[in-house]
Structure formats: structure tokens, C-alpha cells
Design a binder for these strands. Sequence first.
DNA 1: TAATTAGTATGATGGGGCAACAAATTGATT
DNA 2: AATCAATTTGTTGCCCCATCATACTAATTA
Lengths: 408, 408
Amino acid sequence: MSNFITDQTFVRENNLSYVLRLIHARAPISRAQLATVTGLNKSTISSLVDELIARDLVHEAGSNSSGAGRPATMLEINSQAGLIIGVELGVDFVSVAVTDFLGKIMWRKREDANPNEDQQKMIDQTLRIVKEAMAAGKKKNVSFLGMGLATPGTVDIKKGVLIFAPNLHWRNVPFGKIFSEQTKLKVFVENDANAAATAEHLFGTARQSQDFLFVFAGVGIGGGLFLNGKLYRGKNGYAGEIGHSPIMAEPSQTVCHCGNRGCWETYANQYSIIQRVQARLEVKRTSIVPKLMAEQNSPLTIPLIKQAADAGDKESIDSFTEAGHAMGQGFAGLINIFNPEKIILGGPLSIAGEYLLPAIKETMARHSMPEIDQQAEVLLSPFGPDASLIGAIAIVADDILSISSAGK
Amino acid sequence: MSNFITDQTFVRENNLSYVLRLIHARAPISRAQLATVTGLNKSTISSLVDELIARDLVHEAGSNSSGAGRPATMLEINSQAGLIIGVELGVDFVSVAVTDFLGKIMWRKREDANPNEDQQKMIDQTLRIVKEAMAAGKKKNVSFLGMGLATPGTVDIKKGVLIFAPNLHWRNVPFGKIFSEQTKLKVFVENDANAAATAEHLFGTARQSQDFLFVFAGVGIGGGLFLNGKLYRGKNGYAGEIGHSPIMAEPSQTVCHCGNRGCWETYANQYSIIQRVQARLEVKRTSIVPKLMAEQNSPLTIPLIKQAADAGDKESIDSFTEAGHAMGQGFAGLINIFNPEKIILGGPLSIAGEYLLPAIKETMARHSMPEIDQQAEVLLSPFGPDASLIGAIAIVADDILSISSAGK
DNA sequence: TAATTAGTATGATGGGGCAACAAATTGATT
DNA sequence: AATCAATTTGTTGCCCCATCATACTAATTA
């Protein structure tokens, strides 16, 4: 306690937010149950709920008579409180989605993109899709609550500026300003892994968790650290660069794009898997991978390897398993450091979760302290490769659930 | 915001605590300055300060007239608020200290001990020294505020029970119960690295820091994680086992006592340094280390190697440097993950800080992402090998600074 | 003596707590 | 079938006590 000054306004907003989040996490729930769970007086709960209903964030939804006594009026989040636009700027694509307040997708679109070509072009492309999304949303008679944008790299969330995205080769892009001017919406910008972690907390497998890690595996490996019940960002918002911890998974050490050797992510990112498959193909010719590539006129990609693995291709399965072991080594280190309730794997690589997870768990168990390992659950994100897109939605929803627009 | 319910009592206690900590960190300070810094109304500050003075935690200390206007009455912590007993249970020693409320040592004693021999014997030994300490403290006319105990291993701080200390081979020791029965004091039990981190936050080099790491280097390497302004303990209080992250510092991988190979601490703990010196001695005979060992009739220890290094002994200096590089590799990983304001090195090994630090910084810079590294400061704990002993004091002081005895 | 800064006193506003009450149901009794 | 007690839900009115705003007193300098 005691990192900030409080007053009665804080008490009110804090309790409003607490109750609102409880309803979000445990709906349907009655006023009486809320009073029991929070320890607040029944009359206080009534007053808080009245205000939430007046704000159109909550509504009553029938009554529930179980046993003797007056039946309870159940409360739930008003999914029609407004629409949310989420944008994920990936390394080679743009995804946009429109959801209701509960994260249910109403509309979505994904386009390939090339950030290396021209920054302005990619921003224009994104703007165009966002405007399509808004047009689609306007057909419902509900207003927009805001827009969220998730991107790899470090972000100044207060200013809404992307500071530096190594994989995009972008620096100092004022996304918040650009998109709020064009959409007239409140725009939130967040790191992709942090956004995904928020999505798990609000909509996914970490709704009750205070301490969990989200591992975003794709071109690189990024981490969203949810600690003591909130995102941990570190001094400058750089926290979570878990991919660059030095580990030794194999004798040969690939040079990481960060310039070092032995970075964990060089053994476990999507490129490492493609390389593993390529290396196997040179030795062994029975794999169905070349055939699939020819049929689909496609380069060697993770979805294609996954497809091959599903068809029983040993080279593909083995490559995933190998990468899974490398991942597990990193997970072990994380578990020793954080003693989290959960580690959730998401991002593009997570589509191969069924092949990665057993290897991850095996190596993790071998390399982490037994007392800690027994406590930690490893899970696949229910949002898979869309984790950060849903994350972009989640950071908007989270702001509203916080009540106080001043944040913190 | 919004991890807990609040009410007016919370507001009062929180603000009392906030103001008390401000006075602790920035004394001497006036009411007017407190009002400016906190943003609270002048009358509110007056009321809070009155209560702190009534509780004997703060007192007025002269006035300070700078420029025009009525001179300010300066406030400071009442160092005579009471005495604190701190106990550090090390792997092969027991240290006890008595300090005033500001952590100033009034009395201290250290004895060798052997935890492998007999747990009860070591507890009895500790109790004996604690009673000596209390007798010494009673000569002043001030009462005791409480007792803190720092120990390696995982701790249930609510119950005051040591859950498991691998280095001591102890399990489920109810220190809180044992010592509070014998001393009639409120007893706090905490992990050694967490305690040391608290000491840095209250009395040391991290008084203004919200996000910093304490690295306790000795028999093992443990970490105290101070994140978002408070200690992070993880799901079961196991967080901070940073020593068991798998890294590759050298080709040969020593087996760690945790059973794995390649753990960071096996390359950087005190035993690794002793081994490095021993290996060098076999090759080269000019070192003064054997002479020192003979003169002092001492085995090869870190203090002895430090002594040799101070006398210019190349083998000793090189051994420290080599271990420093291994440490730096681990530090780099930590900085990438946490983006902390500071990393503070303490514990037995820190007496060789002047030899370790340059190597640490060099390797750290090479293995961490440049943007992050430039932000992180690496420091030696001002308490050196006593970091956890002062930490035991600090956890008692911290509880009092929290005002609310219900904690949180 | 005016200007300036420090600290205090008083009443206002509005949080949550408490206790009595009203509302809506079940189920046993008549 | 009608009634009444028991039970649970939710509301109302009053209280306590946070901080705030304002006006005040206090102590210094120029």
C-alpha cells in the first residue's frame, strides 16, 4: 500500500471499478453476492450498482430464485455499452476487428502489408481498413467506445507513441495522434505482448490470475508480464524482452537480430523452425513438405509446416518438438524468476501448440526447481495467433472498466 | 487501480503511511512542502502530521527560514520511536543486530554456525544471541518495535514459516512462532534477498526507486524483485530464483545443487570463484594465495581471495573478473526482462565488488539490448555482506511505516 | 507596515457503515 | 386453499469521518 495519495473520489472510483470488474468476470451475479464477495455493505453495493446502470455499463438480467427467500436480481455487463475497434500491426500484416463491449467479434479483416517499403503507405492502408470497420460498425445503432492498437516494440502508452519497433524498423511513430485525428475516437497504443496479456486477463484464461506471463511467439519472442494484478512495464516500458535472455540450447549459436549470440528467441522463433525443417529436408527426401509447397505455390511457412505435421510428417513434427524443447528451457527460467500462476503461449507460433506444448512441459519440468514447476500451468491462448488483435480490443475495454479516465 | 476494496479508513491509513514514508525518505521536510509534494490540502497535512506526532513516529526538529515569510517547522522521523532486532540466518553463521528506528546499529554480534548438524541447536544458539541483544537494548529506555528474521529460502510471510531452504536443508520451520513466544515481540520472517531489497528501498540506494532488483550473491544467487513500488513474491512466494536460469558461460557445465546443468549461479557463486582460483593455482605457483592461507591458517575463502587481490595477486583478480563476466551475462538477461532502474549487488560476494563490477558492466552492455542497458544502473549495496541483516531490520521498519497493521 | 510564506480552524461535501425497513419468495400450518 | 412465519434481497435515512475550500492567525523579511 501507499504508492499514491487517495481521497474519497478515489474510493468511489476504485470501488466502482472493482464491482464492475467483478460483474465482468463473474456475471451473472446479484447485488447480495457482490456484497458478500467484496465485504462492502449492501447499501453501498446498491449505490454503486445504481451508478453503473446509470452509466449504461451494467444492466439487470432477470431474476434467479434458488431456495427460500426473495429471488435475486442478476446483473451483467451491458454488451451494448458500445463497440470497440482493435488493430494489430504485425510485421507483415494488418488486422482490424470490431467487437462489442464483451469482446465478441462483429466484423474483421486482415491484409498483408510490408512495413519495410514505406511507413506512410502502411499507415494509410491501416487507416483505410479502420474506416471500413467504422462504416460496418455504424450499421448497428451503438457508438464506439474507442480504438486500440497493438504493435511489436516499445510504446509510450501515455503519449500513444511507438518508440521503437526493431522488427518493423520504425521509430517514434505517433499512432495515437494519427488515428485519433482521423477517427475522432480515443486511441490506445500498446505493445503486442502486453495487449495480449490484458486480453487473457479480461477475456481469456487468466481472468482470476494476479500473476501470470504471456509469451508471444512469432518473428521474435516477447513477453507480457502481469504481476501483482497489473501489467509490469519497467522504467521505460521496455520490460518483457524475454526473448533475448542468453541460453544454451544447441552448440551452434545463431546471431540474433539484436546483435548477440545465444539469445533464447533465436532457438525458438518461427524462423528457427523453418530452418530446422529446411535442414531436415536436405537430408531426408520423404517429407511431404515440398509437395505441399508446390501444390500451394507457397514458401515454407509455419501454417504450412503445421499442415504437414497434421498429416503426420515426421520432419515437421520433429522440428516443432525441437523448438518446443528450446522454448521449455526459456520457460523454465521464467518460472524460476516469476513463480507465476500461469504461462500462456500465443502469437503466430501458437497454431502449432499441440506439437510444441508437450516438449515445452517436458523440458520445463527438467530445468526448473521442482517446487515452483509443480505450481505453474502452461496454457495455449484461446485466441492463438489473434491474441494481440483481441489484446488491442482489451486495452480499450480495460480502460473503461477502470472507470477513472485518469488511469492508474 | 482496483485490486482491492477501499473505504475511508483505508484513505486515512494510506495517506498517513504515504506522508510518513515521505518524511522518512526526505527529512527534514516541512508541512508546507508535504502539501506541495502530495497535492493534499494544507489542513489535511496538518491533521495527518498531528496524528503521526501523537503516535511518536515523527517529531518537529527546529525551523528553517529560507527567504521571506514565516519560517517552516521541519519534521523528521523520531529515531527513538523504538528499537528493532534483526537476525540473519546464514548458511554457516548467525548475525544479530539492534538498531534504532532509522536503522542505526547500536549493537551487533556474529557467530559461526552449522545448520547441518542440528536444527534445534542452531535455533537455540540464535535465541541466546537474540536475548543478549534484548538485554543490551533494554539499557536504553526505549521499547522494542519488533524483530525481523532473514533467511535463504522460501517463506510464508503471513504465517512466519520458513517453507524450504535448500542450502540449509530445512523445511517448515515456524520461526515466527518460536521467536515471538520467546521474545514476546512481533516477529517478521522474510527471504534474505527480499529483505535486502527492502533495506535498499528504505535505507539504501533505492529510496526513490519503484522498479529495481537486488541480487544476493553468496553460496547461491538469489534475487529480490521490487516492482511497481513493492516486492513481487509470485504465486507462492518463490519468485526471485534468478540463480537457476539456464545460461551458457563456459563449455563445461557444472551440476547445480538444484540438479540441473548450466544454471547461472554455478558460474557466478562464491564456490565458482574458489574453484577458479584453485584451478589457477595448480598451473601457476607465483600466487600469494597459498602463503596467505598458511599465515592465517585459513581455507580458501572469498575474503582471503579479496585480500590477495588487494595485494595485486593476478590469479585472484582474474578469477573475480571471470566470475564478473558470468554475472554480467545473467544481469543482461534480467535487464532485458525487467527494464529496471537499478540492479543492486549485495551479499558475501559483494566485498569483491570493485573487481566484479567492471566485468559485470562490460558483459552486461554486450548482452543486453542497447536501449534498455543505457537506462539501468548497476550498484553495490552500501550494506555489502550485511545486506540481509539490515534487511531483517528493514522489514520491521517497513511494517511500521505501513501504519495499517493489517498489511497489504 | 506591507508582502510573503507557514500553519490552523471551521464548515461543506460526499464517501461507506449501520440498522431498520420493505419486498418477494418458500414452505409449513391451519 | 389460505395464511403466516422464515428467509433472503434490496432500499432508506442517519451517522461518522475522510479531504477540501475558505478564511483565519502566526512569524518572518524587506
